[in-house]
Design a protein around this nucleic acid. Structure first.
Length: 468
RNA sequence: GGAGAGAUGGCCGAGUGGACGAAGGCGCUCCCCUGCUAAGGGAGUAUAGGGUCAAAAGCCUUAUCGCGGGUUCGAAUCCCGCUCUCUCCGCCA
């Protein structure tokens, strides 16, 4: 999920950010994490550092508002807790006095006063804490130090290319190819539902299923992931855990008639949500890490802000299939795991012999929850350019903090936040698109990638429909 | 969908409105004893916040016994609503 849309890229001239605070090595290379960002302790201790780091990705951190909220919270909370302590002590004294048969009426007078003050205070504090939480939940993750600075996708950095792209003109796009084969039907889907859906038939429907099977097999057998089957409907707590809520509710399909008034169920936008949330409120033993999970699910996205983009074909749909990789690691291992997970996604493209490139997203293009992201972009001959087919991100402790996903430190035996990562391995619909376009034979037929043939009963080519 | 039972710490399990963040047991950690793949003895062992501190330690403090409300000076305990789990009936892939 990209969060950059809602992050203003230009700062108003009136707002002058303080000079970045001196690089605090102790804070940034703490006992178990390189970037303990959005840690409330750091937020309070050095909000300017947070502001400066978030500014890298074009996010304006409202220092003044934060400081105001924080000052009010501190005063109110201290006072409220003092009153609570008085009340608790008073109650205890009543119990003790009664046990000895003493008169308790003077204590009661005192309690009456405390009770009155507490009622108002507790209400005000709850409201203030809710406001504070909203503010903090709206803060995106801090880019990792290795993420290149930049404003938008034009400043992403290409890391490597693989394969030889077909640069000759005349390649048909996947929608034309699929419709000509009679195996891809957008009109039928529009009748059934509306725009941005697809009906696949025959060999293409089967090829999509084969791709799912193929990807799952590679990741479970060659890359060591455990396969999961998970719910396609999740609750709000799960969406908050991975960062989709509260900020990106517009991108999600919400369900009605769920059987309970206050039940807030949504269709998953990615398997990341149910899979990563398995860790929510759990403490892993250190030797159980890394956890490596792979799941195939359909994904549902409202595409609220995408009107007019990629309107033709299967590139941007409300419903698509994806095979998702998720890892949970020790903090010190997440950087290495990120490289590894990206390589696992790349392996699928290589086995399918699809030309692609790997880019490092710049700070301005990073998703809301990500500290660092590599996108894999596959070559689409009809567009003569690379298009995203996988996004592999390291979230460090950002999701873990929201989810309270922890592990027990081997030495200290204390619970510590773990790191989470995920990546598409791959987006299946777009993989199908890429195969159609890259394997078109110029006569309306589509060759089947060698790696996929065993999953299609040895089929080597999808032949064009006979002319009527 | 109908009827009933339940939810307490890593696990099992006790808990009379007041000394309960919670007996006891298991597990785990450390120590002692023991010449030995055993047994015994002792100590410790929930989590998340806030304050203080340059920081850590420490100290002070709040909250948490499924979740949310309520009664009360005081709630694991009483009342109401909800969620989940289990059993039986019905329906169903």
């Amino acid at each position: 999920m990209k969060g950059n849309e809602s992050c203003p890229r230009r700062q108003p001239a009136a707002l002058v950010l303080p000079a970045p605070a001196p690089y605090n090595a102790a804070l940034l290379t703490g006992k178990w994490q390189a970037f303990p960002m959005l840690d409330p302790k750091l937020l309070r201790a050095q909000p300017e550092v947070v502001a400066a780091q978030l500014a890298r990705r074009g996010f304006v951190f409202d220092l003044e508002r934060f400081r105001g909220l924080e000052a009010r919270r501190k005063a109110l909370q201290t006072e409220t807790e003092k009153l609570q302590a008085e009340r608790n002590a008073g109650s205890k004294r009543i119990g003790q006095a009664k046990g000895k048969g003493e008169d308790v009426s003077p204590i009661f007078e005192d309690m009456e006063r405390i009770k009155g003050q507490l009622a108002g205070n507790e209400q005000a504090l709850a409201a203030l804490q809710a406001e504070f939480e909203d503010f903090v939940l709206g803060l995106p993750n801090i880019p990792h130090a290795s993420v290149p600075d930049g404003r938008d996708e034009d400043e992403n950095v290409e890391l490597r290319r693989w394969g030889a792209p077909r640069t000759s003109a005349g390649a048909k796009d996947h929608a034309d190819l699929g419709e000509a084969l009679g195996l891809m039907d957008f009109a039928a889907a529009a009748k059934l539902t509306g725009a941005r859906f697809t009906v696949l038939r025959g060999a293409l429907a089967r090829m999509q299923r084969a791709l799912i099977q193929f990807m799952l097999d590679v990741h479970t057998q060659a890359h060591g992931y455990e396969e999961l089957y998970v719910p396609y409907i999740v609750n709000a707590a799960s969406l908050r855990g991975t960062g989709q809520l509260p900020k990106f509710g517009e991108d999600l399909f919400a369900l009605r008639n769920t059987g309970a008034e206050d039940r807030d169920w949504r269709l998953i936008p990615t398997a990341e949500v149910p899979v990563t949330n398995l860790l929510r409120d759990e403490i892993q033993e250190a030797d159980a890490l890394p956890r490596k999970w792979v799941a195939h699910t359909p994904c549902f996205r409202a595409e609220a802000g995408a009107a007019g983009r990629d309107t033709k074909g299967m590139i941007r749909q409300h419903q698509f299939e994806k095979v998702e990789l998720v890892q949970a690691t020790l903090p010190e291992d997440s950087q290495r795991a990120h490289e590894e997970l990206t390589a696992h996604a790349e392996a699928i493209l290589k086995k399918l012999e699809l030309p692609f490139r790997t880019v490092a997203l710049c700070t301005g293009d990073l998703g809301f929850a990500a500290a660092k992201t590599y996108d894999l972009e596959v070559w689409l001959p009809s567009q003569q350019r690379y298009r995203e087919i996988s996004s592999c991100s390291n979230f460090e402790d950002f999701q873990a903090r929201r989810m309270l996903a922890r592990y027990r430190h081997a030495q200290t035996r204390k619970p510590e936040l773990l790191h989470t990562l995920n990546g598409s391995g791959l987006a299946v619909g777009r993989t199908l698109v890429a195969i159609l376009e890259n394997y078109q034979d110029g006569e309306g037929g589509i060759a089947v990638p060698a790696a996929l043939q065993p999953y299609l009963g040895g089929m080597q080519r999808i032949a064009p429909a006979p002319r009527a």
